[in-house]
Amino acid sequence: MSATAPIAVCLKWTPARLDGGPLGPDAADDRFAGISPADRAALELALRLADRLGTTVTAITAGPAGAERALRDALAAGAERAVRLDMATDADSRDVAFELAQSLADAAIVLCGDYSLDRGSGSVPAFVAHHRRIAQALGLVDIDVDTATAATVHATRRLDGGRRELLAIPLPCVLSVEGSLATLRRAPLPRALASRSAHIDVVATPPAHHHGAPAIVTAYRPRARVMPAPAGEVVLDRLRRLTDAGTAPSRGETVVLEPPAAAARIVDALREWGYLP
């Protein structure tokens, strides 16, 4: 794969959070939609890597016409080309990834955000890597590229327990990055202005293949946890432990207080529990 092959960055257009109330964001309202911090970090890294490797950046999104705003912002920031795959906002990740992989067949590096804000599955990058049968490295917290050979990316990824691993990833590859990795540069004014009327390739896509099952949506509640069976000779002791009777702190007290009173209440609780003298 030559270093002049472009770097692609996948940007997901997401409706804003749905809890805004009557004045706040509305799912159908493009004004409040945008791309995630992770996607912005991916764009910034794509621009930096392209600079180091002497190649260009193609920004791509699978989404409705409104998503072109994200592409224009990417062009303003320095992307060379912008592609929109015409798909619904809620298209299935498998269809999205398939179409992205088709369009990105020539990209040397495909950069993604680690998770999209709404769906949060982090699966599209892995799906794209599968379709192209290339290496993947997901959820990266640092990226560097070997400019000498331009054939390997060096990256850092989190493992459990606070450990990290250093990866050498052969090109072509799919990388996904965390939002804190980089801050997107501010677009220079001339590019920002030119991007408003810049050309965007719009690609028609076949009708949806996959359809997610309809879901019952409820407010989040933590799942009841499995409890180890209590030990103890006496039945009453076991029961007490199970029900926490007598030993349990008063879990679940909620108070509405003015800040000074709230602070005093917190200090009292910390004292009572023995965290403060």
């Binding site: 677009a187 001339p190 920002a192 202005l193």
Partner: peptide, 9 residues
């Protein structure tokens, strides 16, 4: 002058 880089218009 705007707050963008290269920001004079």
């Amino acid at each position: 002058r705007t707050d963008r880089p290269d920001g004079d218009l």
